[in-house]
């Protein structure tokens, strides 16, 4: 992965979300350790790595459609976690929903993140 390109993508998200972005990390599924991020949280990397693996497996084993680009967990204390798994990598971000403009986040930022993430990983 092009770490500099990934850092630029994270910086773009940081700029768009402002103080609504509490933390974000990108890590490899195999290691579960952050390779790029903002307010990096190792605990979040380990936790959401585990959760993503469980979700993937649970949906794979069912006759339900499989997980595609992302999943969102609404959390207590006005927080939201957005997880974008892509092959060997996972991008996660923790948002303060009181400060975020959800329409912008959900309709613009997330699709942009997915597109940028796709491109970075595809470019190797």
């Amino acid at each position: 992965m092009d770490i500099q390109a990934m850092s630029r993508a994270i910086h773009n998200v940081e700029r768009e979300l402002g103080n609504a972005l509490l933390s974000t990390d990108v890590w490899t599924v195999a290691e579960g350790e952050s390779i790029a991020g903002y307010n990096s949280q190792p605990v979040a990397c380990a936790l959401f790595n585990q959760i993503t693996t469980y979700m993937d497996e649970a949906l794979e084993q069912s006759d339900y459609p499989k997980l595609d680009k992302y999943f969102i967990l609404d959390l207590q204390d006005n927080k939201m976690v957005i997880v974008i798994p892509l092959g060997e990598y996972i991008w996660e971000m923790l948002i303060d929903t009181k400060k975020a403009r959800l329409g912008l986040l959900l309709n613009i930022t997330i699709p942009q993140m997915i597109e940028a993430f796709d491109k970075i990983i595809a470019s190797g």
């Binding site: 979700m55 949906l59 339900y64 459609p65 499989k66 997980l67 595609d68 680009k69 992302y70 999943f71 969102i72 967990l73 609404d74 959390l75 207590q76 927080k79 939201m80």
Partner: peptide
Amino acid sequence: LGNYYIFNL
């Protein structure tokens, strides 16, 4: 966990 969770499938 809060009020909901969403999976993109």
